[in-house]
Simulated assay, not measured.
Amino acid sequence: MSEGKTIHIVSHDVPYPLDYGGVLDIFSTIQALHEQGVQIILHCFEYGRGAQPILNSYCKEVHYYKRLEGHKGFCFHLPYIVCSRSSEELLDRLSQDNHPILLEGIHCSALLDDARFEHRKIILRLFNVETTYYKELSRHERSFFKRIYFWNESRLLSKQERKVAASWPVLTLSERDQEHYNKEFHGKWVHYLPVFHPFSEVKSAEGVGSFCLYHGNLSVAENEKAAIWLLTEVFDKLKIPFVVAGKNPSSRLQRIAHQNTHTCLVANPEERELQDLIGKAQINILPSFNKTGVKLKLLNALYNGRHCIVNQTAVEGSPLAPLCHIAETATAMQRIVQQLYHLPFGEEEIRLRKNLLQQHFDTATNAKALIAYLS
């Protein structure tokens, strides 16, 4: 693809404001491609975030489509996350030229069976192996009806992901997801391309911070479970200051977070406030209970925070393990927290981060690779 080439990007959501990992990756992808001289026609499904003028700074055109929510977005043969994002207006607009199409997420794969796109250059970038992701959501969900929904969605996604893998080139965010698509779905063309992010350099401060931090979208059952596990199993008896921060926490989580005087919760922090918390923490502690995708919140902590503690699931399939302290049990996490809480974060750790993150997560390098795939 020569400089100035035009591509379509179809996004499952409006990729601004940058308040969760999926849109952070998409917005960073748009910025990185724009900096490489690519002309972008952006298509977004809108369901509450509204039109965002900042997107016009990076895109030649921006189009919005209403997501079909509730029963209008339901059908028996497609996952809800796909069916609710089917739009004739979008398909008609995409069919008016022959520019390559980058689909952000399996969510945007409704054009799979449309004959107009049979010979079109289309690449699907995965956020996760959604079949696995929804199966894990079902396991962690407390509501019976939501568990049934997530289980059925996982079943339908398995069929959709298998069809996609046989039809289109696929890019995964982790080597583990690449292996899964090759082995389980027999993908005909599956490559690993690291996640895009807005962090241009390691800004971790040397010295000692004053608390431990877990952050994430707390409305996601998996993240709520991780936060509650840390509060009740790790920090209940470990009298070290611990802060939970993130979007839309439940009243249950807020109640648990405030049961001890050394633990608290910051609900819906502004981006600057969250970055301030990450930078001032002595330890960012980010276990994961989901075995797919790459955790952008961990990358954020590695670029901007001090010590990081995770479990193996959080780093599996990524090159990030050497930059983290790994513990699988509450007892092991307590022991590592005690070891690190007064240990200054130093020059050597920062040098190691700079080298490894530059090697794998340089946005300009990965943008050029993405452009080559779209050519």
Rank of each mutant, 00 (worst) to 15 (best):
M1Q: 09
T6Y: 08
I7E: 02
I9L: 11
S11H: 06
P17A: 09
L18E: 02
D19M: 10
D19H: 03
G21Q: 01
G22I: 06
V23W: 01
D25A: 03
F27R: 07
Q31H: 09
L33H: 04
E35P: 02
Q39C: 07
I40V: 09
C44Q: 00
E46M: 13
G50S: 03
A51H: 10
P53D: 13
L55S: 01
L55D: 00
N56T: 08
S57D: 11
Y58M: 08
Y58H: 06
K60A: 14
E61R: 07
Y64E: 09
K66I: 09
L68M: 13
L68V: 11
E69L: 06
E69S: 11
G70K: 04
H71W: 14
H77N: 07
P79S: 05
S84I: 06
S86L: 14
E89Y: 04
E89A: 14
S95I: 05
Q96Y: 10
H99F: 14
E104F: 01
E104G: 08
E104S: 04
S109P: 10
D114T: 03
R116H: 08
R116E: 07
R120I: 06
I123G: 06
L126G: 01
F127G: 00
E130C: 03
Y133A: 12
Y133M: 07
Y134E: 00
H140S: 09
S143T: 14
K146R: 11
K146C: 03
R147H: 08
Y149H: 05
N152V: 13
R155S: 14
K159M: 12
E161H: 09
V164C: 14
A165L: 05
A166W: 01
S167K: 09
S167C: 09
L173C: 03
S174R: 04
S174T: 11
Y181W: 12
K188H: 15
H191Y: 09
Y192A: 14
L193I: 11
P194V: 08
V195H: 02
V195G: 04
F199H: 12
F199Y: 13
A205H: 12
S210R: 15
S210T: 11
L218Q: 11
L231I: 04
E233M: 14
L238R: 03
K247S: 02
P249K: 02
S250H: 07
R252N: 14
R255M: 10
H258V: 13
N260Q: 14
V266Y: 03
E270F: 10
E271T: 15
E273K: 09
Q275L: 10
Q275T: 09
D276E: 08
A281D: 01
N284F: 02
I285Q: 00
V294Y: 00
L298C: 01
Y303F: 13
N304H: 11
H307I: 02
V310G: 00
V310M: 00
V310N: 00
T313P: 07
G317A: 10
P319K: 12
A321R: 15
C324F: 04
H325W: 14
I326Y: 05
A327T: 06
T329W: 13
A332W: 07
M333N: 06
R335D: 12
R335G: 15
L340T: 02
Y341P: 15
Y341M: 12
P344G: 03
F345Q: 02
F345C: 07
K354N: 11
T363D: 01
T365V: 15
T365W: 02
N366I: 03
A369P: 00
I371R: 10
